[in-house]
Amino acid sequence: MAMERARRFVDALTRLEETGELDALLALFGEDSQVSNVVSHRTFHGKDGARDFWAEYKGMLRQVKSTFRNMIESGDRVALEWESNGTAHNGAAVSYEGVSIIEWEGECISRFYAYFDSRVLGLELSRGSAPRSEAPATVPA
């Protein structure tokens, strides 16, 4: 079935974002998996590492919802183009976009890596001052 792996990941991530429930997402990761992103200073290993990574993701924002523009699946590789919107713990609006690459071995994810503009996200989380968080300017008539 085309896009089956991409859909499994997206459905599990949606469950995490909506309910905080990690189990469906963690069930996708293999014992030797690697999980990271552009802002992490380390690679998280195995199911325990995946648990730590996704708990940090969910804990970073008070509320978050990801939407997916493109899902590409070819063989054992999935590429997801996404935008995540939410609210930081300081009340600031957060909106950032990126791409996640997922590598599969059989039925398990062996590697997950997310690419996004960490500067924009950092400004939004700390001060709510990134351009995407600011109210749109009004244009004089």
Rank of each mutant, 00 (worst) to 15 (best):
G20K: 07
E18M: 09
S33G: 13
A141V: 13
A135Q: 14
L13M: 10
L16Q: 08
G46T: 11
L26Y: 03
W54I: 09
K65D: 08
H89L: 15
W104F: 12
S66I: 00
V139Q: 08
F53L: 09
E17R: 00
C108A: 14
L26I: 13
G59W: 06
A141I: 09
R15K: 12
A130K: 00
R5M: 02
V38R: 03
G59P: 03
A137H: 02
T87M: 09
M1Q: 14
K65G: 02
K47N: 11
E105Y: 10
R111A: 10
V120L: 15
G98D: 09
A50N: 08
E17Y: 04
H41P: 15
G106H: 04
R111C: 06
R119E: 14
N85S: 09
E21C: 04
E17K: 02
P140Y: 03
L26T: 01
T43L: 04
N70M: 11
G30M: 05
S118L: 02
Y115K: 08
G106Q: 05
A135Y: 05
Y96F: 15
R111F: 01
R119A: 15
W104A: 02
V38M: 06
R15Q: 11
E134W: 14
A27T: 07
Q63D: 15
I101K: 01
H45K: 13
S133F: 00
M60Q: 13
K65H: 09
E18A: 15
R51H: 12
R119D: 14
E107M: 09
D48P: 08
S110Y: 03
Q63G: 10
N85M: 12
G91L: 06
F68I: 02
E18L: 12
V38K: 00
T138H: 12
F53N: 04
D11P: 00
A55I: 11
L80S: 01
K47T: 13
E105F: 12
H41D: 14
T14H: 05
Y113R: 13
W104C: 04
R77I: 01
A27S: 15
V94W: 01
G46E: 12
A137R: 12
L121A: 01
C108S: 14
F116G: 02
E17V: 03
F53Q: 05
V10C: 13
E105R: 15
A55C: 13
A79I: 02
F53R: 06
S100K: 03
S84A: 10
Q34T: 11
V94E: 00
L123K: 04
A93H: 06
R127F: 09
E18D: 10
E4H: 10
K58T: 10
R69V: 02
L125Y: 03
H89E: 08
R119W: 15
E134L: 15
M1W: 08
I101T: 08
S118V: 11
G49R: 07
V78G: 01
G20M: 11
E4S: 13
F116Y: 12
F44C: 07
H45Q: 13
V99R: 07
L125R: 02
Y96C: 03
A137V: 06
P140I: 05
E31N: 13
G128L: 03
E97N: 13
G30L: 08
I72E: 07
S36D: 05
D23R: 14
E73L: 05
T87N: 07
A114M: 12
S84R: 02
S118C: 03
A130C: 05
E4R: 14
R77Y: 04
M60C: 11
G46Y: 05
S84T: 06
D23E: 14
A12R: 00
